[in-house]
Design a protein around this nucleic acid. Structure first.
Lengths: 339, 339
DNA sequence: CTGAAAGCGCTTACAG
DNA sequence: CTGAAAGCGCTTACAG
């Protein structure tokens, strides 16, 4: 087995040049003569040499590793985001080191420790409840952080979200234009900025028409909780004729529950979600929902992070990207609106 | 900003001990007096010191990084697996560095290069078509590899899969016991071992009852292709009364398509999938499917890999884990079988 | 138990 | 353009 690690020394010896020459050939901006380059490349190929990225990281102080902190991947939005983020970063010569923050028994502390130990160049947090702590700690250590799909209010951290307030408002306009008059809201989680923003926009939108939700229940981004909330709101009198759900993941549970109750959608009640994950377009759900423009959110996240890594002095950025309402079969479509 | 990296030197200075002493305090098996430990820990905490994992990796030759190579995350099975794998590895002090192999324009070569550059201690491949190349190359370089949910036939690599042949056979038994007589198969991809094995077990199971599939079409693990295949097989005469689909991801497309054609499930046709991803249990699908025992597969994968890392001489292991058929509403249930 | 020293595999001024 | 040398932050024999 080719067990022994091949080093630049080995290549240098075979090529008949100095170790520094080998290094230069593998360093983008460095200078080397054509002859040297040829000799080194030949020797390197013969030996199967690859520069040790860890050793390089030690010298340059750049690991080209980005820590990605996620809590769970049930909600289809996050795996797809992870795939896109990883691809975008890979294209820029970075790689993603995954940190699962789900087992939050010991809090976020061990994650912070490990993140720093690996000398990550930057951090992206996604779907983490208590990211406050983490982001503060890392920023204090001088590691750039961008929050993906979460915009901690007062915090001095960069964040990329979709235009959640605006999105909530769009849903309100849509449902009112559709003639709904008893609208319930199964919200996300009041501890999350996205959840709060969607709710706020939604309530403001209703208020503009002198309406208010007939009920607001936090679904905690959980299927079980959302299912129970559905039963609860449908027991109200008068019964709601529309439900706006804080994200698609919960909206699927709402639709499943309504189906099991024998309530027709959108005949008796319209349902609108938020995210537009792939599943929303599947025939079994046909969910009307506000699209989070994933590709543009990912682009903005990666750009913001890499810019901050290159120039740490760069100010904090809060980027909001607008997304359209996608009309499908789960909600009554107002006259004149086109699918 | 606390910009400057804090090193063991800084801690040593503050604690009034040597740099080696600091190192020993942070090295599990090393010896240090209570007094030294106390002084060092105090100083380290004060400074916010964390050993540089990269420097440690250079000395020890162990990066404690595992490369995870995945192709796409649409199929819900993989994100969930990724989450579990990452968690299990994290619990053992390892972390996952993600390599997306989707943009296969330049082939797998760049991925191999990067994998080796980062000195990963081991590699897990999941859902990669052309993993042959990659696994061979890495194994040749002395890096342990475990293939997750894929068992390249002749290859000398460790692999963990569910018992796919057996699973296919179970489906055949089940459908025959349910009285189906015109059974079609929308297979996975004949280039994948899982696809081939499921198909083989299925056909053997039918053959044991002197039957054969009325049609076999590769769905390529793709929704569009599976949808078209559904239309094709349902146009046959006589029309199939059951369809076994190579994985759940495609089975959802099959169910969506049947619904859009107005064909009742399981009244007119039974549908069975493979994987038992979370979505299979959602009310909208209620998919009867063979469960891949994810937790046990992940455990076996991580165990096998870590064992091989600790003892490179260990022989290649092929582990197959049996999974049950999960009975739900998408298929007619034979008399006497219990849900 | 503890410190001085070598060395992991590189990059990068520094002279030539 | 090129080589010798220093040094990134650590671990680990080696003497004490």
């Amino acid at each position: 087995m080719a067990e022994a690690r091949i080093t630049s020394q080995d290549v240098a010896r075979l090529a008949g040049v100095s170790q520094s020459a080998v290094s230069r050939v593998f360093t983008p901006g460095a200078s080397a003569s054509k002859a040297t380059i040829a000799k080194v490349q030949k020797a390197a190929e013969h030996l199967g040499y690859r520069p040790n990225a860890l050793a390089r990281a030690m010298i340059t102080g750049k690991s080209r590793i980005i820590g990605l902190v996620v809590a769970y991947l049930d909600n289809q939005f996050y795996p797809v985001a992870l795939e896109r983020i990883s691809n975008a970063l890979q294209a820029s010569g970075y790689h993603v080191l995954v940190f699962m923050a789900s087992n939050t028994q010991d809090g976020i502390e061990p994650v912070v420790q490990e993140l720093m130990g690996y000398q990550v160049d930057g951090i992206i947090t996604a779907s983490v409840g208590m990211s406050n702590d983490l982001t503060d700690r890392c920023a204090a250590a001088g590691i750039p952080v961008v929050m993906f799909n979460r915009g901690q209010d007062g915090s001095g951290h960069s964040a990329v979200t979709s235009a959640n307030v605006e999105g909530g408002r769009k849903v309100a306009e849509f449902l009112i234009a559709g003639g709904h008059r008893h609208i319930a809201h199964i919200a996300g989680w009041s501890g999350s900025s996205t959840g709060r923003d969607r709710q706020r926009g939604f309530e403001e939108g209703l208020a503009a028409h002198s309406q208010a939700p007939v009920a607001v229940i936090d679904g905690l981004y959980d299927r079980q909780v959302a299912a129970q909330a559905t039963r609860d709101v449908m027991a109200l009198t008068p019964r709601p004729d529309a439900i706006f759900v804080g994200n698609d993941h919960m909206a699927f549970a709402v639709l499943d529950t309504l189906r099991s109750m024998g309530i027709s959608v959108p005949g008796e009640v319209s349902v609108v979600g938020y995210d537009d994950v792939p599943l929303a377009a599947y025939g079994a759900y046909e969910l009307t929902t506000v699209r989070q423009p994933l590709n543009r959110m990912v682009e903005a996240t990666v750009e913001t992070l890499l810019a901050k890594i290159e120039d740490p002095g760069r100010p904090v950025q809060k980027i909001e990207i607008d997304g359209p309402l996608i009309l499908r079969g789960s909600a009554r479509i107002p006259q004149g609106w086109t699918t």
